[in-house]
Nucleic acid binder design. Structure first.
Length: 887
RNA sequence: GGGCGGCUAGCUCAGCUGGUCAGAGCACCUGGUUUACACCCAGGGGGUCGGGGGUUCGAACCCCUCGCCGCCCA
């Protein structure tokens, strides 16, 4: 006998181990089997599982379990990302906390060793947490972006793109993060609105004939000013264009130039130009051949290009002093406070500086074109489709991708420099040396580029590098292109777009046919979860409290949300209860002798009750299959919930009770077999979403009846039930029963008929068939409607409650319990409602336009409905009449 | 400034290509010692589908407009 509730804590680890040991996580070998592959969005190797991972990986597991059960060679390839900046940051912080020397003092090699140590120590955390969720990844194929194979792929890609001119080195402004002293890409810059000031400063004309006022939110950059620009059409300044200003504090002579970048509406209309520290000014500088004066060092401290008094100062300290000095010089014309947008590093949180450096770039524009076409042509489809717009928007305006980082943790750029700065890009040092010898004619010392690649450079190769590329492995051949990518919209640009570009470029085929974009998980109030807010729901804690299945079901059922999933414990608890419900339904089956019958054929069931549940099961199987095939995770979950709870438990189990305890042995045996059959189908259908409880129930019901050919659910065959199993006659029969019980219960409750009252159910007016249905189901009616029996009658006795269900005129004689006045009022109200509906439909049908223009079936539907309403109304009116005479 | 998403019962949300679509879960109220389940069962109240206008025989669903809320990009 089963326990009363499911105990996830003891069962989950046991089942996970059994699954893993069974080899079910690896794709089947059958070369004829269709393949279905998913590559995991690799979490940061040193990270831990948060609720977003839980959602993302649950959906992937649902898909992979579903397709695996459908007989496909299903591969879910797991792995982790080295996460350059993030990991380096964590380790640096750790070193600092432990009072160690910093990475600079430690040196590159020692520091990188420390990170590997840290990786060895904490790298298993997140993959173990994925196991707790039930993720059926193929761990035998687990990869890491920095492992040898993937590193070889990175080098090969870099070298080839360089040879093709798609990777190049350039000196231009980059987003510089002074905290990490590295360049970052546009995507890693976060625009934050902050309070600031807007200073207006006067720059005197060199000839002393006046001044020009410029405004800035970054006064310190004036030390790098090399011009002032005015709009060419600006009448106020036309006479000044070409004149020279003396830059205050610095003393440098700078020209006034005419450039459309100056906005006459903004401030004074004149704008200071700092080509080395502003993206717009850089462009202006190029147009006018202005000098680029870099005033910062890598830490954003002022360098030797600044006046002596400022050298070595932090940029913000310098700002204060500039403001003070300009004030003292009497050159400050205005100061206003303002809110403005300032770029920050997304990891460091510090203000990013446009900074002139040499960096490596990918010509993304060229690579983007095939990636754009692939989505336009539907070779890769976003689900939901609306994200394609976001993708196109970005891809069509793509900028060069800065891929070099001045970090130590990552793929070292495979470029070597000769003594004269000549660069040799090659897959190995040996190859670079060979190239250098060819170039110089003799051997010269080479030094490798100090920089590493942006983490996303290696993740962009993930769908094929993990399969073994550049080797021509079986896995590459079998599983590329992968089928579905499941990820969040926050990394469409970072990751998805780049995989599309690299996949198409190196494999000539899209990396995945479908991209499912999942929503973002937020707290119950809709706020982003964050440690500082203290509103973080830890998925592992939730698994501890409710079991992995409950969390999985919740996330799956809520995954339809457009953008945000508002998660609450209450919701998870509700779905935990759902698991318990299923558990107890199984318990019921067990206690009532439900067992699989050898050779049971659901199509041959005789009892309408059984024919009905067989049809409902087939209907649900079809709906769930269609939903899962289409990434309709929420529809699948909700459909299963309704079917299992509201159909199987509330009606089938209840209606089967009289049969199971009855004397008709054949009916009983058939019901036992059908109940067991339907339960098996249910366990299969629910398995992708709730793998643990279903697997456990599969195990404990293994010896109930005929042996199964499938020892484990994880590798069992997905149910494919023909819709021909649906029997309209059985549907109608059970439908009538359900309606009669529902309506009868409602009336009893409304009119306060005590549960102890056991009136007969009177059947007044009905077809022979309806009469047969009600009479043959008397035991069910007796139990569920708490009636004494089903009796034919010709008149409604005084004080009986009449009601109409599917055209059948029924009544419950409970005179002694009811208040006649109340019953009259109820009937009058019911009649009034029906009259209202009759009126509405009548008007509709009376409208010639409606009859002429609406589709025929809609008109027919309304006609039928009108007839039904009229019929019911007439019956209740008659009853009301009788009641009036009686009363 | 450009773009996207949302505004449906107290709360969280379903409602696909306009015609039983006004629904579900939770919460709430009433009643339950029916031998699967109180992590339960039965019943119930509650919404002019953000405002306004339009198209249509017919609109929560299409169009316009306004108003909030959120996100992305500049």
């Amino acid at each position: 006998m089963l326990e009363k509730t499911f105990d996830p804590k003891t069962v989950e680890p046991r089942l996970y181990a059994a699954w893993e040991a069974s080899g079910a996580f690896s794709p089947i070998d059958d070369p004829a089997a269709e393949t279905f592959a998913i590559v995991i969005p690799p979490p940061n190797v040193t990270g831990s599982l948060h609720i977003g991972h839980a959602l993302n990986n649950t959906l992937q597991d649902v898909l992979i379990r579903f397709e695996r059960m459908r007989g496909k060679a299903a591969l879910w390839l797991p792995g982790t990302d080295h996460a350059g900046i993030a990991t380096q940051m964590v380790v640096e912080r750790q070193l600092a906390a432990a009072g160690n020397i910093g990475r600079r003092e430690m040196g590159r090699e020692a520091f990188v060793d420390k990170i590997w140590e840290w990786k060895a120590q904490s790298g298993g955390t997140i993959v173990n947490q994925l196991r707790r969720l039930g993720a059926s990844c193929d761990w035998s194929r687990e990869r890491f972006t920095l492992d040898e194979g993937l590193s070889a792929a990175v080098r090969k890609v870099f070298v080839q793109l360089h040879r093709e001119g798609l990777i190049y080195r350039d000196k231009r402004l980059v987003n510089w993060d002074p905290h990490f002293q590295t360049a970052i890409s546009d995507l890693e810059v976060e625009q934050r609105e902050v309070d600031g000031s807007f200073w207006s400063f006067a720059y005197p004309l060199a000839d002393g004939s006046g001044e020009i006022v410029v405004a800035t939110t970054r006064p310190e950059t004036m030390l790098g000013d090399t011009a002032v620009a005015v709009h060419p059409d600006d009448e106020r300044y036309r006479h000044l264009v070409g004149k020279t200003l003396r830059l205050p504090i610095v003393g440098r002579l700078i020209p006034i130039v005419a450039d459309e970048h100056a906005d006459p509406e903004k401030g004074s209309g004149a704008v200071k130009i700092t080509p080395a520290h502003d993206f717009n000014d850089f462009a202006v500088g190029k147009r006018h051949n202005l000098a680029q004066v870099n005033i910062f060092d890598d830490f954003a401290r002022l360098n030797d290009n600044a006046p002596a008094a400022y050298r070595g100062l932090d940029r913000f300290e310098a700002r204060k002093r500039i403001v003070a000095e300009m004030e003292a010089l009497g050159l400050t014309r205005n100061v206003e406070t303002t809110r403005h947008v300032v770029p920050h590093g997304d990891r460091s949180g510090v203000v990013v500086e446009p900074y002139l450096t040499d960096q490596w770039y990918v010509n993304a524009e060229v690579l983007a074109q095939p990636a754009i076409r692939a989505v336009e042509e539907g070779r890769t489809v976003f689900e939901p489709r609306k994200w394609e717009k976001t993708y196109f928007e970005w891809m069509r305006n793509i900028q060069p991708w800065c891929i070099s980082r001045q970090l130590w943790w990552g793929h070292r750029i495979p470029a070597w420099y000769g003594p004269d700065g000549e660069v040799f890009v090659a897959e190995s040092e040996a190859a670079a040396k060979t190239a250098a010898v060819a170039h110089y004619g003799d051997e010269r010392p080479l030094s490798q580029d100090e920089d590493v690649l942006d983490t996303w450079f290696s993740s962009a190769l993930w769908p094929f590098s993990t399969l073994g590329w550049p080797d021509k492995t079986d896995d590459v051949r079998r599983f590329y292109p992968t089928h579905t990518l499941v990820t969040g919209f926050d990394i469409i640009f970072f990751w998805v777009a780049r995989m599309m570009m690299q996949g198409l470029h190196f494999m000539d085929e899209v990396p995945f046919k479908r991209i499912f974009i999942n929503a973002l998980v937020r707290d119950a109030e809709g706020k982003k979860m964050s440690k500082s807010k203290g509103n973080v729901l830890d998925p592992l804690e939730l698994v501890d409290d409710y079991g992995a299945d409950a969390l999985r079901f919740t996330l799956t059922a809520m995954s339809g949300a457009a953008r945000d999933i508002k998660l609450s414990r209450q919701r998870i608890e509700g779905y935990r209860n759902f698991g318990t419900k299923l558990w107890n339904a199984t318990r019921f089956c067990e206690m009532n002798g439900a067992r699989r019958a050898e050779g049971f054929d659901p199509a041959k069931a005789a009892l309408p009750l059984n024919r009905w549940i067989v049809g409902e099961t087939a209907r649900t199987a079809a709906a769930v299959t269609a939903a899962l095939a289409d990434c309709g995770f929420d529809d699948a979950a909700n459909g299963l919930y309704r079917f299992i709870w509201n159909t199987y438990c509330d009606w089938y189990v209840e209606l089967s009770k009289p049969v199971l305890t009855g004397a008709d042995e054949a009916a009983k045996a058939e019901t036992q077999a059908t109940a067991a059959w339907a339960l098996d189908v249910i366990l299969k259908l629910l398995h992708p979403v709730m793998p643990f409880i279903t697997e456990e129930l599969w195990r404990v019901t293994a010896d109930l009846g005929a042996a199964r050919s499938e020892p484990m659910l994880i590798s069992a065959r997905w149910p494919e039930l023909p819709l021909g199993l649906i029997d309209p006659a059985a549907d109608a029969e059970i439908g009538l029963l359900v309606a009669a019980i529902g309506e009868g219960r409602s009336l009893r409750s409304e009119l306060n008929v005590p549960l102890s009252a056991r009136p007969p159910l009177l059947v007044l007016e009905a077809t022979a068939d309806q009469r047969r249905v009600l009479e043959s189901n008397a035991p069910a009616l007796m139990q569920m409607l708490r009636v004494r029996g089903v009796e034919a009658a010709t008149d409604v006795p005084t004080g009986a409650i009449p009601f109409v269900v599917a055209g059948v005129n029924l009544a419950l004689p409970v005179a002694e319990f009811i208040d006649l006045a109340a019953e009259k009022a109820r009937l009058a109200k019911e009649v009034a409602n029906l009259a209202g509906e009759q009126d509405r439909i009548g008007k509709k049908l009376g409208n010639p336009d409606f009859v002429a223009r609406a589709p025929e079936e809609v008109v027919d539907e309304n006609r039928e409905r009108l007839a039904e309403v009229q019929d019911a109304k007439a019956k209740l009116e008659a009853a009301l009449e009788r009641l009036k005479h009686a009363g």
